[in-house]
Simulated assay, not measured.
Amino acid sequence: MSQVWLITGSSRGLGRALAEGVLAVGHKLVATARNPSQLEDLKQRFGDNVLTATLDVADERSAASAVKSAVDRFGRLDVLVNNAGYGDVGSIEDTSLADFRAQIETNLFGTIIVTKAALPIMREQGFGHIIQFSSVGGRIGPAGRAPYAAAKWGVEGFSEVLAKEVGPLGIKVTIIEPGGFRTDFAGSSTTLREGRPEYEDTVGKMARYQRDYNGRQPGDPAKAAAAVVHVAGLAEPPLRLLLGSDALRGVEQNDAARAKEHAAWRELSVSTDFEPGG
């Protein structure tokens, strides 16, 4: 059955791969970007199945307009994908508060704003699927990516609460956690700052790794898109889905280390309770 999708950040990266994947299997799409002229080729290739729209995810009116355009054109909204985002590399000390706010505004508040724009439509329909692009950085805090990780950890918490609130209303929620994919995310979309020498072994190492990693990531964007399209068709999709062998390996190692730490400090943790009968 054909679905109606709205994808934020459709002009490049995983958003672009997903837009093409959605249209290739016959779904209808509202493809959005800050500059919709970058989406003109989708209209030429897929005709009336695609509507392009301007969307600044940090602007409430822009989000409301994009969601309304989906309903006006296609009659409903089945799948919302909050994909738009970016993440620079730099130390916490050297990252300005303006840069912190900008990354959190796009990556976290953008997700919240567009989600809230879509919720009344999906609630009234009694169905829908909200797919939130987080990151492996939403499960692990990588050196040099504090604003990005703070935002993505926020997306994880927001989306987990969202799933509990809207599940009984027939609305599904899935958090996508990609590892490294061969898009421009690690290239032109990212500013890399190695910073001062005191952070050479942490932030500097991350910045150099990011430069070397670009173009050698294990993840195939087209396969990621196919996985997301598959999940959107499931009656019982997962709340969280890791994408990529590197993401799976990193999170499994991180979760094991976290469980070990919990066990090591268990006695101190439980010592803060009142005594029985207290």
Rank of each mutant, 00 (worst) to 15 (best):
G154V: 03
G154K: 02
V155G: 02
V155S: 03
E156G: 04
G157Q: 11
S159L: 01
S159G: 01
S159E: 02
V161G: 15
V161D: 13
V161K: 09
V161Y: 15
L162C: 09
L162D: 07
A163Q: 10
K164W: 07
E165Y: 02
V166R: 04
G167P: 02
P168R: 08
P168T: 07
L169K: 04
L169D: 05
G170D: 02
I171N: 00
K172P: 04
K172I: 04
K172M: 07
K172H: 09
K172D: 02
K172T: 04
I175E: 05
I176V: 14
F181S: 04
F181Q: 08
D184S: 15
D184V: 13
A186H: 14
G187T: 11
T190L: 14
E198I: 07
T202M: 11
V203S: 01
M206Q: 10
A207D: 14
Y209E: 07
Y209C: 02
R211Q: 12
D212P: 00
Y213S: 01
G215M: 09
R216S: 12
R216W: 07
Q217D: 00
P218M: 10
D220I: 12
D220K: 14
P221I: 06
P221G: 05
A222P: 07
K223V: 02
A225L: 10
A226I: 06
A227H: 09
A227E: 11
V228H: 06
H230T: 02
H230I: 00
V231G: 00
A232Q: 08
A232M: 11
A232S: 14
G233M: 12
L234M: 13
A235P: 00
E236K: 14
E236W: 03
L241N: 09
L242P: 06
L242R: 15
L243Q: 03
L243N: 01
S245I: 11
D246V: 06
A247H: 01
A247E: 02
A247L: 05
V251C: 01
N254F: 08
N254S: 12
N254Q: 04
D255C: 02
A256G: 10
A256K: 15
A256C: 12
A257D: 15
A257R: 15
R258Y: 09
R258H: 08
A259E: 10
E261N: 08
A264V: 04
W265I: 08
R266K: 14
L268R: 10
L268E: 13
